[in-house]
């Protein structure tokens, strides 16, 4: 299953990645290979088999609704490259 350069550009835009023309071609080939692999797998007869979303034999893992202390404020933004008055600063969005 082949995907187009336009598909690569669309996925790259969704992931906010800037790709060079060479990279686009590389990923076009690699992604096509991945999809080809998926196509092969999809040939397996799955009639009557529920789609598997999780492989763990676990359900209903809950926590009680109890509030715990949050992170100290000075730690919250300590790794942020840009912060002000406890808030994260981010570049203009639009």
């Amino acid at each position: 299953m082949a995907i187009s350069i336009e598909d690569v550009e669309h996925v790259a835009r969704l992931a906010r990645l800037a790709l060079s023309e060479d990279e686009k071609e590389t990923f076009r080939r690699q992604l096509s290979d991945v999809l080809e692999h998926a196509r092969v797998i999809s040939e397996v007869d799955t009639e009557g088999v529920e789609p598997t979303s999780h492989t763990l034999p676990l359900v209903n893992v809950f926590r009680d609704d109890v509030a715990r202390p949050s992170l100290p404020t000075e730690e919250v933004t300590s790794n942020a490259p840009w912060a002000a008055d406890g808030a994260f600063r981010v570049p203009r969005i639009v």
């Binding site: 406890g86 600063r89 981010v90 570049p91 203009r92 969005i93």
Partner: peptide, 8 residues
């Protein structure tokens, strides 16, 4: 036209 945004 915002210069930056503050996230809470």
């Amino acid at each position: 036209g915002a210069d930056f945004s503050l996230e809470d």
